[in-house]
Design a protein around this nucleic acid. Structure first.
Lengths: 250, 250
DNA sequence: CGGAAAGTTGACGCGGGTCAAGGAATGTGG
DNA sequence: CCACATTCCTTGACCCGCGTCAACTTTCCG
């Protein structure tokens, strides 16, 4: 999956109503009229190249974003420079909620692949919510989902062994791809071992060893970023009710 | 701090406008007229006794709650029965956001002391938000705060040593008490070692040893639940930009 | 007073972090 | 096209922080 430097000309004029993610994204549960109103507020941004930031800590946070394609990594840095990965955002998922706090993003968001996103400015969303109770309810649901997902992640980091963490991570990715009508068992990891380890609170070497270990046990086959989950059920069995979800919408 | 079984007769009629937490809670930044409207929606519940649940996983989640006094513990349980503490809610803080997701609470909330809370039903809050942009903005800020705090906690569990975690926890408590005009250096822990350890992803014995260790280093004195932070600055120094905040407002 | 719950303290061992070396893929310049 | 550097990943060896187990003390409460 080499990054395409040369972009095809794309429709700049897109709308929520014809977006393939419509039933995953905000419009979920809204009628046509409402969706058209939402359309006015949503802007599609030019695609981000790998390594390019969507926003950084301290940037004025006046929008949330919906990922259409690609993958974003959300992370924070401490004063002493090291990084904590907070999550990965796949197509159909939202980022930027933390900007709601006091108008500044607490986290950073960076593209791991070529990534296209829709921009949902808070102020316009706010206005719309005044008029469309359905939208407001949907926004609140998304927010609730975000909170619930963070909580799952806390359980993960607080209690689980390295093995359970990686299994949980893979099961989560699998479920999220599946809900986007992609394969639940074969996919490319958009992120490096470094990012996985950081996210799960593990050393990169541990992640690598675990992949090898899982492979020995015929749970999966892995080659660099390419993963095939050959025994998804058994992987699910390893995490017993501590699955991750993160940033998903439904 | 023994739980008082016998309750004094309290004003059932309370209002946001005369609540001592007004400037920490929802009304923050709203004018008198708006606050009066909010008053209509808020109900004060009879105090919870220690060990009594405010809500449980699976309960219909139609409200968030503001803690007036006491302390709540939020936690989840896995299928195999063990518990993960997600956070503690002190006076002036909110819980119940995770019910927004799909109308059911994902977590449990239980009183650690005698605790009184205000009830903020979502549907009424929703209606009010339609009318009061200031309130909607405030709700969104709170939500953003919640997300940002969960993220800080993730950093904590992902990266920090046992020592840093406990120091961070104490500094967080200190800051939260201080912002409620209580002592930043002397307070009683509302929660057991068990809960602290669970919350921070540590064994109870480790928590106990760390308290002893901190005491040797003249960082604090501790006797069961009673804590005096004798060198708050040095404690702060130990956590360098990975402070907790959780559930705080403003 | 007795039993249970909460907290403390010590001994031991393992999971996973750290350090180090090497391999494989990708990019860069000649 | 190849030489070389760089980044990413893998694998092995070592070892330490913290979990586990166990015994004991203190507090709580009927």
């Amino acid at each position: 999956m080499p990054p395409r430097k040369k972009l095809k000309i794309v429709d700049i004029k897109v709308s929520c109503s014809n977006c393939s993610l419509a039933d995953l994204c905000l419009p979920h549960g809204m009628d046509m009229e409402d969706v058209n109103a939402l359309d006015q507020a949503v802007k599609r941004l030019p695609p981000l190249q790998p390594g390019q930031h969507l926003y950084r800590t301290g940037d004025p946070g006046r929008s949330m974003y919906a990922v259409r394609s690609g993958c974003l990594k959300t992370y924070c840095t401490t004063e002493d420079g090291d990084e904590q990965v907070l999550g990965f955002t796949l197509p159909g998922e939202l980022v930027g909620l933390d900007g709601l706090n006091n108008g500044q993003y607490v986290s950073n968001s960076i593209a791991l692949e070529t990534t296209s996103v829709c921009n949902l400015p808070y102020d316009q969303l706010e206005n719309l919510c005044q008029k469309l109770p359905a939208l407001q309810r949907q926004v609140m649901r998304i927010v609730g989902k975000e909170v619930a997902n963070d909580q799952k992640m806390l359980m993960m980091l607080g209690k689980r062994s390295a093995e359970e963490r990686l299994a949980g991570f893979l099961v989560s990715l699998s479920a999220r791809y599946k809900s986007r009508n992609l394969s639940a068992t074969e996919f490319n990891l958009p992120m490096s071992r470094q990012d996985i380890g950081n996210y799960l609170g593990l050393a990169i070497e541990t992640v690598s060893r675990l992949f090898a270990h899982f492979q020995e046990q015929k749970l999966l086959t892995v080659n660099r970023r390419a993963v095939v989950l050959t025994d998804l059920e058994r992987l699910k069995g390893m995490v017993e009710g501590c699955q991750l979800g993160e940033s998903a919408i439904s």
